[in-house]
Amino acid sequence: MLVDYLERGVLAGVIAGLAYGLYMALVANPLLGYMETVAEGSEHGDHASAGEHAHAAGEHAHEAGEHAHAVSEATTAAVSIGSGVLWGILLGGAFALAFYFFEPALPGRGRVKTYVLAGAGFLAVSLAPWLVLPPTTPGAEQAFDPTFRSALYAGMMAVGAVVAAGSIYGYRRVSTRSRPIGVVTAAVPIVALVAITVVAAPTIVEIGAMPAELVAAFRGLTVLSQAALWALVAGCFGWLQTRAGVRPAAERRDDLLTSP
């Protein structure tokens, strides 16, 4: 059964990963290419659109710009598309493993459970770390060394997982009495996490010379594309489960009770 779930998860991941690879190819690669040019342009000073900030952030933009050129742009573009597909497969596989074990504990009926788990995964893998380390644009300046930031990212993933678990546990405890109060209870850990990070987390990512609107658009796109990837994994996984004839435990139980 575990292996069947994993198989469907990886297949869902392939579908979602191909879609994400397409997004990498059509949107992210060209956009990041453009943003690299903006970051590098600002380094050369006043002719760039962000010229007035250039002197302050120029050095860092320079460092970040140079960093990207150890391999050719074509290689970066191709490997990034491939990584996008692999990323979908990885999320799909991990999603299926988690779904196999946590399905009985997830709230909702049928396919709702897959979306609840996808939401929890998105919160843990991306949203929680982004509250401290927002998606970085080319030319951005970051505090601390990469090792510390990786550890921080991993730590925030753990915090996100705990918050998601707390949220689901709270909903399950309270929703038997009242669903609206259950929803409010589920929101409490998430709101607390956002409030605490907004107040307490230091600013680690400085956007540098990049126009703020462009950074906001890029971050919005990053958040939406990751959310879409999770939704697609959950949607495809649910569809594959239905197609394979797997029905939720609750329905199977109803059948057992009603059958002669």
């Binding site: 960093h67 990207a68 391999v71 990034s80 996008g84 990786s150 990751q226």
Partner: peptide, 24 residues
């Protein structure tokens, strides 16, 4: 995500930006 071998790491540059995981 954490492969730090420079060539492989740099090849994934755009990908890491797009998924919001970078380390410059």
């Amino acid at each position: 995500l954490f492969l730090q071998e420079p060539l492989a790491h740099d090849s994934m540059h755009n990908f890491r930006h797009a998924v919001g995981v970078t380390c410059h």
